[in-house]
């Protein structure tokens, strides 16, 4: 590992300030991706800024109106075990359970998982399906962006100089709703060849009032299948609707070939998994 200096900020402001002043500095969160990149020499920062020393960046809170707030530094394990998440957004726990293995889930953070902008990461599809927003903090400024606008390319995001992903906000879902995250992996919990998350909500008559579908592993960024909302909301969901969304998801996918799977296979699996994810959410929401 190349030498770097290490800095422990006491506040978000101090961290942002430091990052602003040191162009080559990188944020250290859980470190599970970062340290591998450091070891491989893929990044050679001048400084690491350990934001885990900042109080308040790990918190899971619920507000009936605002919904769920998750700190950027909450570990995957926190998400997996949080009763609030189990009650209000169990799909996030489901996604967390499919990330790697306990020793990684104990160190890795949701903020890091998102900010790393790995297109196959497991949280982003679920957060997209939940219509989540990210709070990005920089000196004297905060901006809230819809999650799908955060990603720009493979391992690229919109974070500016001195900007930190501090919080993830998930708006409340309708009372009758359910989500499913499915991933196709080579061995259990290895990187997603394709990951699909779906969330559906109904009114008391069984009419769809909320729909979200997020995809991972099939393009340079996680994708939001926006058509899901148009196709489903206001409808009683049938096989035809599901098929239509799955086809749309497939049409959006623009995957690559790598050692884990070919582009063609991934593209085909987007269809299969989207159907399964939607059917899974439907079954759960209707108590089947």
């Amino acid at each position: 590992m190349r030498y770097f200096e290490y800095f422990e900020p006491k506040s978000v402001g101090e961290a942002c300030q430091f990052l602003n002043e040191h162009e080559e500095a990188k944020i250290l969160g859980g470190g599970v991706s970062l340290v591998v990149l450091l070891k491989n020499g893929l990044i050679t920062p001048s400084h690491l800024v350990n934001i885990k020393t900042i109080p308040g960046l790990a918190r899971i809170e619920w507000d009936d109106r605002e919904g769920l707030t998750i700190g950027g530094l909450n570990h995957h394990r926190d998400i997996l075990l949080s009763p609030l998440i189990q009650r209000h957004c169990p799909i996030l726990a489901e996604a967390a359970s499919k990330i790697a293995t306990p020793p990684i889930r104990n160190l890795g953070t949701i903020g890091g998982n998102v900010a790393h902008a790995e297109p196959s990461a497991d949280f982003p599809p679920a957060l997209i399906a939940l219509n989540a927003s990210l709070m990005l903090t920089s000196p004297g400024r905060e901006r809230k962006v819809p999650i799908e606008e955060f990603f720009t390319d493979y391992y690229e995001n919109i974070l500016g100089q001195g900007e930190i992903l501090t919080r993830i906000d998930v708006p409340p879902l309708p009372p009758r709703s359910a989500g499913t995250y499915i991933k196709l992996d080579k061995i259990t919990n290895s990187i997603a060849i394709v990951g699909v998350a779906s969330v559906i909500g109904f009114d008391e008559k069984g009419i769809c009032i909320y729909a979200g579908v997020g995809l991972g592993g099939v393009a340079s960024t996680p994708l939001n299948v926006k058509g899901a909302k148009d196709i489903l909301v206001g409808e009683k969901i049938t096989e035809t609707h599901i098929d239509k969304i799955a086809k749309e998801a497939q049409a959006m996918a623009n995957p690559i070939t790598n050692v884990h799977a070919s582009a063609e296979y991934r593209k085909e699996m987007v269809y299969v998994l989207t159907r399964r994810a939607l059917q899974g959410s439907l079954d759960k929401a209707l108590g089947r």
Partner: peptide, 14 residues
């Protein structure tokens, strides 16, 4: 694929 990240041997859940 010269790493356990890309060369997958069976793990406990498999």
């Amino acid at each position: 694929n010269p790493s356990f990240a890309d060369y997958k041997i069976p793990m406990a859940m498999d």
